[in-house]
Design a binder for these strands. Sequence first.
DNA 1: TATTAGCACTCGATTCGAGTGAGTGCTAAC
DNA 2: GTTAGCACTCACTCGAATCGAGTGCTAATA
Lengths: 366, 366
Amino acid sequence: MELDERKRTILHAIVRNYLETGEPVGSRTISKMADMALSSATIRNEMADLEEMGLILQPHTSAGRIPSDLGYRVYVDEMLQRHEAEGEQSRSLQTDEHVSLEDREQALQDREERLLDREAKLEKLLKQVARMLATDTNYASMISAPMVRRNKLKFIQISRVDVSTLLVTVVVEGNVIKNRMIPVADVLDDETLLKLNILLNTRLGGLSAEEINLGLIAAIKQEGGKHSELITSVIDAAAEAITEDEDLQIYTSGANNIFRYPELADKENASGLITTFENKQDLTSLVESTLEGEASEPGTGIQVYIGGESPVQSMKDCSVVTATYELGEGMRGTVGVIGPKRMDYDKVIGALKKMMRALDDLYKKT
Amino acid sequence: MELDERKRTILHAIVRNYLETGEPVGSRTISKMADMALSSATIRNEMADLEEMGLILQPHTSAGRIPSDLGYRVYVDEMLQRHEAEGEQSRSLQTDEHVSLEDREQALQDREERLLDREAKLEKLLKQVARMLATDTNYASMISAPMVRRNKLKFIQISRVDVSTLLVTVVVEGNVIKNRMIPVADVLDDETLLKLNILLNTRLGGLSAEEINLGLIAAIKQEGGKHSELITSVIDAAAEAITEDEDLQIYTSGANNIFRYPELADKENASGLITTFENKQDLTSLVESTLEGEASEPGTGIQVYIGGESPVQSMKDCSVVTATYELGEGMRGTVGVIGPKRMDYDKVIGALKKMMRALDDLYKKT
DNA sequence: TATTAGCACTCGATTCGAGTGAGTGCTAAC
DNA sequence: GTTAGCACTCACTCGAATCGAGTGCTAATA
């Protein structure tokens, strides 16, 4: 059977109505709609067809129809196409409605703030983005910290904080900074310290994790003479700073919003979702899946997972809309909104696009 | 009316039974208990008295009794006294059952790990503690990062990472480290850098936030000559590191456990609690209240908030058991367990005490 | 005088059945 | 191909009946 124009219209009507009311929609409701010149009986026939095609379903015999996952799918796909088309258009028109982050932009006005130690301030930004998305949409939101490429050592410094303590500061590519304190028994004079610093920087600067092998370490130790033990500690710290695959930071917000939607608020669902939001662990699959999808088919960058399509088990009754954001320098992360399957996809996609544009601008203005 | 021995026994029986079953307990249930040689009628009379005294109440006329908040209070108070007594005993006996953190202790065996950059590793420890408490008790848990006293500058260092970037590293009392990157237009040679470092350390080292006033800053700037702009930046960073009243970090775990207890799992309650756990903001009042309470009456360090006693509005149907932990050096924080009013206080208090002992040992072994 | 047996009573919870209404599928007429 | 009409389904609501755990009170008992 074919999904002709009329069936498509009816499907749309059903989906839209269901998104609004959250209740199964009957044939009479549809036939009474303004631009619908058909009787309920006709609608019923078409509905029967749509059901046969797996696009809608009945909760029980004497109820109206609700969209099936597949039904949502065709609805969303069409919407995405429309958004994409619009996107092309607006890109040439250059709308300037991205005001929401303006206070942040303000904060970033002075040059110093901008190049700041990423770890600290980025976290605040991400939390803010998550919160804004959640409050804007009334759904739950998540955002992953961008994956930073950082496998090259940029700078090492040993300094003496007090007589018995040394501080090792390591800067790696991407301006990620790691500190480590090392207690020492024997006091080192300034000269030795300076020598060690020069030695370490000349030998290790610019190297990646793979390049720092045992041979090299041994060589440096030899050069360092009696301070080999200290050198080991320092290189250790450096290695940790480079390799440490810090478990993908993810921030969430608005978890409580799930209670707004009865279909998610029952104990079973709520408990599972809350656990997912708390552990964050499970959300990584969502991040990965989004990045993959984006790579394989780079479109607007928006992806929608309906029900079971989501890689996260506990979200089988939810829909997830994700996007990939970029903060320049190839730092990419994933941001997403999680809500009931009958979420307002249009609004959510709009909010995400707006947010991504804001993030884009934020770092483009550097 | 007086709370004589028999009334007390009956009250205990009611509370204990209610903690177990979660259902109102009737006179017959009590009279049938092993060590109870009274008829249900007598129990009923006593119950009427207890109700008059405000220690128990009836959900409705034809139901059994449940403990009132006041009833819980006397129950818990007695338990706390008992615990305190036991505590005295076990302190001289020196039991050695604190095994739960042993893997962590293992990790801290090698000396280096121990003095490590607190920020990073402490966070993991705290998260682990929270999770362990939550899984041990099946309630929700929270832990606040210890408040560090850090108002004295210990060490400042400016170093050149690359031609256009300087790195300022500030260490303050308590070995908290702050980094900040500063972009510079004009290149600084090593000598100037060294001079600046010495200048800053001699003038600022050991000073507290109050002591770094505008006059001093002006004086330093003058000494620094043409690098006054840079000096401003550095002092800025230092000041930030000292004062920054970083909004009291709090970690939570096991929020989903609230769904185990029907009296907390209804939408209203659950939504409120989840929001509280997510924002963490509201939990600060709990931390403060605990520290205050601890200060005014230093006992076992355990405090119990029953229902409305808790300073957190959303927890009016919960009980909260908190404790103050200490990681040496006067670094104190608060750890707590949040559950239904009918929580197993004994188990929770036990778990908290055990955890505190483990934390104590962890840092005493330094 | 304190305790207990007995009894009427209360009231939430559960069950049952009737009634309601939104919605369907099918058939026959247009 | 569309529509009016009709019998049918089934979740939902509501009130009545029943159940039973538990109470308070009274009178008898040790």
